[in-house]
Simulated assay, not measured.
Amino acid sequence: MNITRPFGDTLALIGNTPIVRLAGPSAAAGCDIYGKCEFANPGSSVKDRAALWIIRDAEARGELLPGGTVVEGTAGNTGIGVALVANAKGYKTIIVMPDNQSKEKMDTLRALGAELVLVPPTKFADAGHFVHTSRRLAEETPGAVWANQFDNIANRRAHIEGTAPEIWEQLGGRVDGFTCAAGTGGTIAGVGLGLKAFDENIRIALTDPHGAALYNYYAHGELRAEGSSVAEGIGQGRITANLEGAPIDTQYRISDEEGLVWVERLLKEEGLCLGLSSGINVAGAVALGRELVAEGRPNPQVATILCDTGFRYLSTLYNAEWLAAKGLPVFDWLARNSASAEAVSA
């Protein structure tokens, strides 16, 4: 049995997440597909990494002082990570979030002691956008700093210095491809830059949901969105500071329906309860794996990010009525359970 020594503090629990071979995706791609289990972080998402690096960077620059406040605009997961890190370091937290995100994220933030400010979802150009609202609140709050995850490159440094070396070591120094979606761009850019430092031949692929503009940007040089997605925390309409210089070699556009296929299969076949962003990432990894196999790469290994736990979406992604209302396929067990509940109530 491999028993590690005790960690010196709770923040050391962030990162060094396990990586796992995914049987169903590997069979579908004809090569080994690996998922980096970011749901194993204390805040149950990949965003814990960015939160830790951003707060440490603000401390190092002398902007965040004892008793201070961290303000952030987020779809939820970064806010949860910020709240946990801030609690561990003695800071207060104010989180601004669109009011169409999952109830579980809102309840979690309140449970962690964060002050939660909800705003209507709107375009980035609108002054009421959650990012701009969080910036104004930081400016108006004494002793506060704005985390600014979208344009604060401490975000992507978390993945250059942490996630990428972990993947390289865990896969024995042989990585043929990496892909994930972009929200802030910190993960795809940071892991891409970090892995390319080990081997320039590693193919970095953007996996973009519908409703985002980056697929067309990397494919055709134009920021143009098409369609829509219910996925939370991914999809971007501009080139953030974290995305500048990202080494994107190719790109895929993945529908919610494709992503849900893998959300369903990974739960039913492999016991992993994940969010839709993870399903979209896995669909992109399968596409990248197939591409590398078709090119004749011998036994390619492809890694992606399993972003967060599905337990954060019980009222949405794992709710039959919500899925049906969105025109999305309902998982068969949810349909059965919903029908059984209706029969009992009748």
Rank of each mutant, 00 (worst) to 15 (best):
R5P: 00
G8D: 14
D9L: 04
D9V: 02
I14L: 10
I19N: 03
R21L: 08
A23L: 06
A29V: 01
A29D: 00
C31F: 01
I33Q: 01
I33N: 01
A40R: 13
A40S: 13
S44H: 13
S44C: 13
A51Y: 03
A51P: 07
L52H: 10
I55F: 06
R56N: 14
D57A: 14
A58I: 05
E59Y: 12
A60M: 07
E63K: 14
G67Y: 09
G68C: 11
G73C: 11
N77Q: 14
N77P: 08
A83K: 02
A83T: 12
A86T: 11
A88W: 10
A88F: 11
I95Q: 03
P98C: 08
L116A: 06
A127N: 12
H129L: 08
S134R: 05
S134M: 08
A138H: 02
W146F: 15
R157P: 00
A158I: 03
A164P: 05
G173S: 11
G173F: 08
V175W: 06
A182P: 05
G185C: 06
G185P: 06
G194L: 07
L195K: 01
A197R: 10
H210I: 00
A213P: 05
Y215P: 00
Y218H: 10
L223Q: 00
L223V: 01
A231P: 04
A231N: 04
A231F: 04
G233P: 03
Q236F: 00
G237I: 01
E244M: 12
A246R: 02
I254A: 03
L267D: 11
L276Y: 05
S278Y: 03
S278W: 02
A283E: 03
V286N: 02
E291H: 13
E295Q: 15
G296C: 13
R297H: 10
P300N: 11
I305V: 15
I305Q: 00
L306Q: 01
C307T: 11
W322E: 09
K326D: 03
V344N: 03
S345A: 15
